[in-house]
Measured scan of single mutants.
Amino acid sequence: QTVVIGDTTYHLNNPEAAQQIAKELAKKYGLKVVISGNTIKLK
């Protein structure tokens, strides 16, 4: 699972954790979560 935040890319072996982290950050910073395949992007 790949999480992309701005110009930073994180690789996590746990998809659920990756999605949870993405949701928390999106909520905290008012970002939009875009999931395509096994890549999660925060914009």
Rank of each mutant, 00 (worst) to 15 (best):
L12F: 15
K32R: 07
G37K: 04
I35Q: 05
I40D: 00
V34N: 03
T9C: 15
V3P: 02
K23F: 14
I40G: 01
P15R: 12
P15M: 13
T9I: 12
K27P: 01
L42G: 00
H11R: 06
K23T: 09
L31M: 09
H11K: 07
I35H: 03
I40P: 00
T8I: 14
L25R: 00
N13V: 08
K23A: 11
K27C: 13
Y10F: 11
I21G: 00
L42C: 07
A22K: 03
K41N: 08
V34M: 07
E24I: 15
L12A: 08
L42H: 01
K23L: 13
Y29I: 02
G6W: 13
G30N: 07
K43I: 15
N13C: 15
K43Y: 15
K41V: 14
I5Q: 03
A17Y: 11
N14R: 04
N38H: 05
L31Q: 02
L25D: 00
E24R: 14
N14T: 13
T9H: 06
K23Y: 14
G6D: 04
Y29W: 05
K28S: 03
K28G: 00
D7Y: 15
T9N: 03
T39K: 06
G6R: 06
L12E: 01
A17H: 10
L42W: 05
Y29M: 03
V4Q: 11
K43N: 06
Y29R: 04
I21W: 15
A18E: 01
E16K: 10
H11Q: 06
I35S: 03
G37P: 02
V33T: 02
S36R: 06
T8G: 04
T9D: 02
K32L: 12
A26L: 11
G30M: 07
Y29V: 02
N13M: 10
G30K: 09
I40R: 01
E16H: 09
Y29G: 01
N13S: 12
G6I: 10
Q1F: 15
V33M: 13
G6H: 07
A22F: 10
K41Q: 12
V3A: 03
T9V: 13
T9L: 07
Y10I: 13
V4Y: 08
T2N: 08
L42P: 00
L12I: 12
E16C: 11
V34T: 09
G30D: 02
N38V: 05
P15E: 08
I40A: 00
N13R: 10
N14F: 10
V34Q: 07
Q1T: 15
V4A: 04
N14I: 10
I40C: 00
I40Q: 00
T2W: 14
I40Y: 06
D7E: 12
I21R: 05
A17L: 13
T8L: 12
H11A: 05
L12C: 15
P15T: 10
E16S: 07
L31H: 05
P15I: 12
L12G: 02
V3I: 14
K43Q: 12
A26I: 05
I35P: 01
A17E: 13
E24M: 15
V33D: 00
G37W: 06
K32W: 11
L42I: 10
L12Y: 14
D7F: 15
I35E: 02
K23V: 09
G6P: 04
K41W: 15
V34A: 04
V3E: 02
K23S: 10
I40T: 01
L25W: 09
E24P: 00
K27G: 04
A22C: 05
K23N: 12
K27H: 07
A22Q: 02
K43A: 10
A18G: 03
K27N: 06
D7W: 15
K28C: 14
